[in-house]
Amino acid sequence: MKTFTVVCGLWLACMGQIFAQSNPWEGSWNTTFGSLHLQQDGNRIYGDYAKLGVIDAAVDGQNRIRGEFTNRGKIGQFSFVLSADGKSFTGKWWWMGQAQNQGEWKGSLSSKTKPQLESHFWTGEYVFHIPQASTEKVRTRKLSIKQRGLQLTGTFEDGKAFSAQLKPDLNSLASGYFYIGDKKFSLDGKTSNPNKNTTWTGEYWTRVDQKNSYIVNLQGVQNLGSFKSKTY
């Protein structure tokens, strides 16, 4: 009985350690460039830091991540290596295309609690509206969006896909697309209130010479813990 108890205890301890290491990068970190907040979704890591920009990275090996960051409209790249105890990291950063000019970026873990991401303000529930006359039957549709770094993924209420890439300023779209029925439309746009993101507008088209406007209104922040975008 004693042997069983010891073995069971060791098994539980081992399982607990494995569970704790399942998202080793998730949490808040005190770093060279201010507070860094990271969320981990499998091999993808997303976050923001010091209210300067966003982090978009991927696991690259057992204890390393590589990715991109934004800083007041500029894009840089980085590589972080996690310590054996998971409580600190060392790393390098450089501006995009300038890998020969690297600086240090170090950090220590301050909290393992899943952090809120202030710069990921695009996540939420929206209403996507095409205000002018259109040959399309659907003009107003509910839309769910999740931001991961510079990438927006979402679905409309009918299950059709929405996808867009943010510009480094985080307030406008570099490119994107959405579906009405089986027809794919390209889009771009910008927020009229980037801090609260209550409304954003832009244009969509199927051909360069056939642009139309759209308006998107924020309805509320959504709990997207189990959200999975649909792609076509």
Rank of each mutant, 00 (worst) to 15 (best):
E68M: 09
F4D: 12
Q39Y: 05
F33P: 12
G76S: 08
L150Y: 01
A164L: 00
S110T: 15
S213Q: 10
F128Y: 12
K228L: 11
W205V: 01
F128K: 10
K183W: 03
E125F: 04
C14D: 05
G176E: 06
S110L: 14
A161E: 15
Q39I: 13
F156C: 11
C8M: 12
T231Q: 09
W122I: 02
G42I: 02
S163P: 00
Q40T: 05
A174I: 00
T123S: 15
G73F: 02
G97Q: 13
M15K: 13
Q98D: 12
S119M: 14
S226N: 14
S111Q: 04
S28N: 15
S175M: 02
M1H: 06
S111E: 03
P131I: 03
G103E: 04
T3E: 12
E104C: 06
E203I: 06
D60T: 10
R72S: 13
G225R: 01
R44V: 08
G97D: 11
S111K: 08
L224G: 02
F227Y: 06
G27S: 08
I65G: 10
G86C: 06
K87H: 10
Y46E: 15
K228C: 06
S144D: 06
K2S: 10
K160E: 12
G176A: 07
I55Y: 05
K112H: 14
E136C: 04
T206P: 02
V54D: 09
R148N: 12
W105K: 07
V127Y: 01
N30P: 12
F227G: 02
Y177V: 00
W93N: 11
L10H: 00
G67F: 04
S119E: 14
P115H: 04
A133Q: 15
S79Q: 12
E68H: 10
N171F: 00
I180R: 14
F178Y: 09
L12K: 07
V127R: 05
R141N: 13
N63Q: 15
S22I: 07
D182T: 04
F69M: 06
G181Q: 10
T135R: 08
F185C: 03
V127L: 11
G53N: 09
D209F: 05
N197D: 10
N23G: 11
N171Y: 00
M1R: 07
Y179L: 09
G189T: 04
E125Y: 05
G76I: 03
C8L: 14
W95N: 08
A13Y: 05
K230V: 05
F80K: 10
Q165F: 00
